[in-house]
Simulated scan of single mutants.
Amino acid sequence: MIDEHPEREVFAGVDTHTDTHHAAVVDPLGRPVADQEFPATTQGYRALLTWLGTFGQVQAVGVECTGSYGAGLTTVLTASGLVVVEVNVPDRGTRHSRGKSDPIDAYVAARAAASGRAQAIPKSRTGTVEALRQLRVTRASAIKARTQAINQLIGLRVTTPEPLRQTLAGLTRAALVNSCLRLRPGPDLGDPVHASRFALRQLARRIRRLTEEIDEVDEHLSVLTAAAAPELVALFGVGTGTAGQLLVTAGDNPERLRSEAAFAALCGAAPVPASSGRTDRHRLSRGGDRQANRALHMIAVVRMRYCPRTRAYVARRVQQGLTKKDIIRCLKRFIAREVYHALNQPRARHAISTT
């Protein structure tokens, strides 16, 4: 379909999926113009972009799941100069009242962009922070697998036949792994004694391989994190792990965050009013990125233990009658402010060699 008014203003929305994307176009009042499905491939992204241009001047495109299914499309649309905003998936109540289909979701996304309800700028995912995110995913899965292997090793130690159980009893985790690495099972694995020796040795070898993998990833993460945000790493109580998480939360383009208050809300550190009657107080936020909130919490705990200025602040607030939860909430909000300004310092945005 070719529009008869190529100069008019329109808004678009895209419902993203693994194999296909469904796009819709509306006018500034939210009235439907057209919709069509495209394959989720490079050629499909270009066809979708060309299709959008036939209806007029696209003011904004609302895209669902810009960090997953819509990541490729978001990159193409942004590179073409279009304004892309992130649209939340419709909630259950909206779907219950309006129904659920790809065209319906695409039109909802387009109307969200047209009304200004969707304003969040998606992460660019084209620099060092995206590399950090991928490495952190690999590290998290390796740690989870190692923890599972360690738990299985400890469980097998309890049920292994005597006298091997007595030999392994009372050992620390590191000593247990080293002892199991030295086990020599016999050729007959039908014997429970030889089978237990073989199983323990295999688990110990798995733990050793995963530990080597984690150490290797940690080396790259340390280099990338320090190069991407040296001002952030220099803050008191901020380590490689917490800095990496905060970087991933902000993205390669932290300037997309309008203010430090927006960043605090993104991290779940914005104060939420909880007043009633004569009670005037705030509570901890349960929203935002919970992993980023955990990173701020860890920084606050470290400062409460080792930072003299923070210890003096805690003592003063305790005298004022604040609870520990309220003090941590205040500290997390202050740390979010420091982190926001550190993230917006000029830094390396592109791929950095770790060799």
Rank of each mutant, 00 (worst) to 15 (best):
M1T: 14
E7C: 05
E9C: 06
E9D: 15
G13K: 00
V14A: 04
T18V: 13
A24L: 09
L29Y: 11
P32S: 05
D35C: 13
Q36Y: 11
A47M: 15
L48S: 01
L49M: 12
G53F: 00
A60K: 10
T74A: 11
V76N: 06
V87A: 03
V89W: 10
R95D: 07
K100S: 15
D105L: 02
D105M: 03
A110L: 02
A113C: 05
R117D: 13
A120D: 14
P122R: 08
T126E: 10
G127S: 10
L132K: 03
R133T: 01
L135V: 10
S141E: 14
A142S: 13
N151G: 04
G155P: 03
E162L: 11
L164A: 11
L168Q: 01
R173E: 10
R173I: 09
L176M: 13
L176F: 11
V177S: 03
N178T: 06
R184P: 00
G186I: 08
S196M: 10
A199D: 07
R201I: 00
Q202N: 11
R206Y: 00
R206H: 08
R208M: 05
R209C: 02
L210C: 01
V217S: 03
L224I: 04
T225S: 09
A234C: 05
L235V: 08
G239R: 04
G239S: 07
T240E: 15
T240C: 12
T242I: 04
G244A: 07
L247N: 04
G251L: 02
D252T: 09
P254Y: 02
R256A: 14
A265N: 07
L266P: 02
P271Q: 09
S275E: 14
R281E: 05
S285A: 13
R286I: 12
D289T: 05
Q291F: 10
A292R: 04
V302N: 07
V302T: 13
A312R: 15
V314L: 06
L322E: 11
K325L: 11
D326S: 14
K332E: 09
A336M: 04
R337N: 03
A351W: 14
T354P: 01
